[in-house]
Design a protein around this nucleic acid. Sequence first.
RNA 1: GCGCCUGUAGCUCAGCUGGAUAGAGCAUCUGCCUUCUAAGCAGAGGGUCCGGGGUUCAAGUCCCUGCAGGCGUGCCA
Length: 545
Amino acid sequence: MILVKETSSLLKEALVKIGEKTGMRQFPSPYLEIPHETRHGDLSTNVALQLAKQSGLPPLKIAEDIVKLIAFRSPVFSRIEVAPPGFINFFFKPEIFYPIINRIIREGSRYGCSNFGEGKRVLLEFVSANPTGPLTVAHGRHAAVGDAIARILRMAGYTVVKEYYYNDSGRQMELLGRSLYARYKEASGAKADIGEDGYHGEYLRELAREITNDEAKKDIDFFSSFAEKRIFAGIKQDLSEFRVDFDSWIKEKDLYESGAVDRVIEELRKAGEVYEEEGALWLRSSLFGDEKDRVIRRRNKEPTYIAPDIAYHHQKYERGFDLLIDLFGPDHHGYSPRLWAALTALGHDRGKLKIIIVQLVSLYRGKEKISMSTRKGEFITLRQVLHEVGGDVARFFFLMRKTDSHLNFDIELAKSESLENPVYYVQYVHARSASIMKVARENAIAPGKDADLSFLREEEEIAIMKKLAQFPDVITGCAKNVEPQPVTGYLQDLAKAFHNYYNHFRVINPDNQQLTQARLRLVVAVKTVIANGLTLLGIPPCEKM
RNA sequence: GCGCCUGUAGCUCAGCUGGAUAGAGCAUCUGCCUUCUAAGCAGAGGGUCCGGGGUUCAAGUCCCUGCAGGCGUGCCA
């Protein structure tokens, strides 16, 4: 919200003066909040309540003293009132919100950008699904969240690299190859023996049909790499359909081949953070906040899966980023302490690595829950959902809940092109605005730069302007918490304010050119902010519905 | 057993460092289309914020405790 700083410094000055008079030395830094209710003003503070105890004065008296000190210091307030039990409520004059409209139109797609991140470099790793099967709906949420976070951080002044890390080696790939081989044999009549740990999904059956008899004479390695290539191509295609792209792809195999895994184990050994026991190599992770020590190299000398992961994150640190962000599934949340432990043991600052848990997605068709089991290979793929509900709607739904909250995704609701669907509600504002602009053009009216905005006096208009002014703060808030969800809520709020306005007032009014001009400016500003918000979520705004 | 998360309206969820009469959408009911897109708007009803203690001028929010649900706790990834 604009003018928070100004109000805050006025408040601080007043507090200092009061401190001189009463001998109070310490006061809480004045916290201003935007009240829920408009009758409590545009900004509100509770400092007087906080000061009451240490000063021994009644809070109302303190509040009144503060108000007396600042009431006439600034021309921006229409009034400042004291409300029991001791709140101070600030009301701004409507005209101070006018400049925001011109600013939005001037800045266009840059409105909302800030230097909050001070150009810090962020490495954001997400999705990172292994090429053992098609992307699931859960991966879809990771993709939507990761991509939105990247966009938000960039808007807030960070430099972001989006990275995808995948395991293309070892036991997992061998199992994949064996599973595919079993499916191939099955196609020629044999019984498929995939085993407990194998991959049971239908997709391998389909892949098996594409293998020629000639190729099948080859070994398991052939089947592994065939499956990997085909599945990974499918993953990339799904991501591109979802319009989520990555700047960088890291393969686990490379970490082995470059010696990075051995090197990092050696480093830990030199640092004295590992020990041998029962033939295995253990990391002293319990010294660094983990519940227990962890094996990083098995008795058979094979590294455990954490070893390449340590090497990978070690490299992330050495690549010189200011902040590392990992998006994990909930099944990995017990994994973060040991990763942090390993990195701390290597002398890295664990505070630089932020791990975000992206909670599970449950699919519904109306009331009916769709049961899924990745292990049995029964799941709805991301592709199926994209084809059924469309990428834009899916993105919005994936981002509607807080990242670390469980998400219920109702496919019926997502498909419905009705008032129940929040995506259309927001898009509708953009389309409506575009439509108004079109009619204005047809009537040869343009939203002139010199429009006199003081014609915007309706309560609804002021409310929209206040909402528009909040957008940059919403973005920095999201960046600070690394959480895209508030953007969806903001867009819905702004959309509501606009639809309400639209239904009560006519923008284009041939009898009043000046009013029309001013209102058109407001509409352009709303359209711009809706577009910027949707773009942050990776959803293209539409001109027409 | 230990650790983490969740519990707010019939349903799905917001609720920012503790603040004012706990909010929104959907669902239900009632109104609004000769006017820039009705995929819209306005209004109404609907609550033991899981229970119980505590801290505070003030608790959905913080502390303790109990209950319910989910997850984690591999020389699997």
